[in-house]
């Protein structure tokens, strides 16, 4: 690791000021410390944001659950009300890394984590994500990469929470300068869709403060994934379906795929294909077809398509309860 100074921010306002001196926000550190050790980041200062007031709580209100950015993944995974109201989110949190990682890794950190692409993580590879001119995964070893992207970089968004929050139609409250702004999950990642260097839409001095997840009566959700190993492994593909069941029909349904694009992958037409229909395998297959319509099964990535189809089926049918 390069040498850096360290400071604990007392308020979000000062955190974003302190970080401007070539700094990085430090929460759980699971991603950041690895980046520094591998020479991918050389911050002058680490701004510890764990002391920010009000960022460690999960508050359950009538119509939403507000989750502080510093809530650990373990806390979220084990939170009784979150498990009941937002099962997909709790399951997604429980599927992150290992127990030790979940004990320190935070909600904010999981959402803002950087690419795990093995070219990006190689100290000596200067790929397009690091300001170079090419994506080495294109035509290279890309079995863990994206089926969809608008830019040159093929690395997918691997945040478990992003997939769940996308399907749950959540919003993220971000400190931007002296103000806070609220972003939809799609907005939180939209830059990564078009800009190869972006991991998400946030600037270096923008900080996630909390996540707000709407909760409607009778809402259901399910998280399913497949990885090569049973635990402590990155999902090859993950899927979250969320919605309500009214009279046996799906309402307000959204399906998102993870690890297939630089953003959590949602397609309006796919959701529409399920709206007002029963959560059957046949209907799920139609939704999956629309979700995967523009997939580019290049080189080693094509296998993600049948997996995604199967996961959509399992997530949607799981909503039947």
């Amino acid at each position: 690791m390069n040498a850096f100074s360290y400071v604990t921010a007392q308020t979000a306002g000062s955190a974003v000021e302190l970080v401007r001196e070539r700094g990085r926000f430090l929460a759980g550190g699971m991603d950041l410390l690895g980046e520094i050790k591998d020479g991918l980041a050389e911050p002058a200062v680490l701004v510890n944001v764990k002391a920010l007031p009000g960022t460690r709580e999960i508050v359950v209100a009538k119509d939403k659950v507000v989750i502080g950015a510093n809530v650990t993944l373990a806390t979220l995974a084990e939170h009784a009300e979150a498990k009941k109201l937002l099962p997909a989110l709790a399951q997604a949190a429980d599927a992150v890394g290992s127990p030790q990682m979940r004990n320190v890794g935070t909600v904010g950190g999981n959402l803002a984590q950087h690419s795990r692409c093995w070219y990006y993580r190689q100290r000596d590879v200067r790929c397009v994500k690091k300001g170079g001119s090419r994506c080495f995964a294109r035509g290279g070893e890309n079995k863990y990469h994206s089926l969809f992207t608008k830019n040159m970089c093929l690395s997918p968004c691997v945040s478990n929470l992003a997939v769940a929050l996308s399907a749950l139609d959540a919003a993220v409250v971000v400190q931007r300068g002296a103000k806070t702004v609220t972003l939809a999950i799609a907005q939180l990642y939209e830059r990564a869709w078009s800009e190869p260097k972006a991991h998400h839409s946030l600037a270096a001095d923008e900080l996630i403060l909390r996540v707000e997840v709407p909760v409607a009566a009778g809402a259901r959700s399910a998280y399913v994934r497949i990885a090569e190993k049973n635990e402590f492994d990155w999902a090859l593909v993950s899927c979250v379906a969320a919605g309500r069941i009214e009279g046996g029909k799906l309402r307000g349904v959204r399906v998102a795929l993870g690890s297939v694009a630089p953003i959590p992958w949602q397609v309006k037409e796919a959701n529409a294909a399920l709206e007002g229909r029963e959560p059957t395998a046949e209907n799920a297959a139609k939704a999956a077809e629309r979700l995967l319509k523009d997939a580019e099964p290049r080189e080693q990535i094509g296998y993600k398509i049948p997996i995604a189809q199967a996961l959509v089926k399992r997530a949607v049918t799981a909503l039947a309860g």
Binding site: E296, P297, R298, E299, Q300, I301, G302, Y303, I305
Partner: peptide
């Protein structure tokens, strides 16, 4: 999946 013949061949890929 490839052995089962379930992997689509990529437009750009091998």
């Amino acid at each position: 999946l490839a052995a089962l013949g379930k992997v689509p061949k990529g437009a750009t890929g091998t």
